[in-house]
């Protein structure tokens, strides 16, 4: 059966860690190389894939044209496969009929802001602005050509709500905080949505193989292909790190921008 299982999240919410966990699990809990590339080298925001599939160069197209045709690129790719694919995405949910299932990882936006600032080498305030921008599109190419295609992240709230909305395929929501608190339980809970049987010994081994210290150690030794700025990709991964690193004004801004969705997810009391 061909189709796509999505590993979805707003950026800096633990998506890379989840992918490594799954890769290890699929290999029976084996050690993983953080720089091990995707098996067939296909990239969902690769320009070449788009250009060859559509027959036109994305570098001559507008954002709206790329976004309109991107689903057909994915569909063609998915249909040409005999096995389901597992793809990471940070874009908002769209009701593709070739989607088999989704695991959506969500993280407290106050912690996301810290991590996003570090990852993009911007100030925390700039990260908060990105997260609060409606219909935010990243990596668009208006003045220069970006290596990858644009991605429509939306605001943090838009991104989350697109996955909370009813969909014609199963969507399993799991929080980064739950993943940190009990990785084995969280992994066991999401595996069925992705078409895996739950093997508890392999779950345990995969959790051990992808401990944050291990991943950070690998990055320190060899770097990480997905790191973009001057900072390390794998940070402290702290839960509630925002409590001593956000100013009251920054915290207030995030809560003003996203309070309704945060309350919906239990990051704020319902009567915040």
């Amino acid at each position: 059966m061909s189709g796509i299982y999505w590993l979805a999240s707003y950026p800096k919410s633990g998506n890379t860690w989840l992918r490594l966990l799954l890769r290890s699990y699929a290999a029976g809990g084996a050690a993983v190389d953080i720089n091990g590339t995707a098996p067939d080298g296909w990239s969902i925001n690769g320009r070449t894939q788009f250009d060859e599939s559509i027959g036109l160069a994305a570098s001559d197209l507008t954002d709206a044209e790329i976004l309109a045709w991107w689903p057909s690129v994915l569909q063609k790719w998915a249909q040409a496969r005999t096995e389901p694919a597992y793809l990471k995405t940070h874009t908002m949910c769209r009701p593709f009929d070739f989607t088999l299932g989704v695991v959506y990882l969500v993280r407290d936006p106050r912690d996301v802001a810290l991590s996003l600032a570090r990852h993009t080498d911007r100030s925390i305030d700039a990260a908060i602005t990105i997260m609060g921008t409606q219909d935010k599109i990243m990596d668009r190419s208006r003045y220069r050509l970006q290596p990858g295609l644009l991605q429509s992240w939306g605001s943090w709230s838009q991104n989350v709500e697109s996955y909370l909305a009813p969909a014609p395929f199963p969507v399993h929501i799991v929080s980064y905080e739950a993943m940190r608190a009990d990785s084995a339980a969280a992994l066991s809970g999401l595996l069925p949505v992705l078409g895996f049987q739950v093997d508890h010994a392999a779950v345990k081994a995969a959790v051990a193989a992808t401990a944050l210290e291990t991943l950070r150690g690998q990055e320190a030794a060899k770097g990480f292909v997905e790191a973009v700025g001057p900072h390390r990709f794998f940070g402290e991964g702290r839960v509630e790190g925002w409590r001593d690193r956000l100013t009251p004004a920054q915290r207030a801004r995030i809560e003003a921008d996203h309070g309704r969705v945060m309350a919906r997810l239990g990051y704020l009391d319902a009567d915040y």
Binding site: I54, L56, W69, S72
Partner: peptide
């Protein structure tokens, strides 16, 4: 693709 259709007598390219 959504932009290109190959027909027996020619090829159509459509840019909305």
């Amino acid at each position: 693709s959504p932009a290109v259709q190959i027909c027996p007598t020619g090829v159509r390219v459509a840019m909305p």
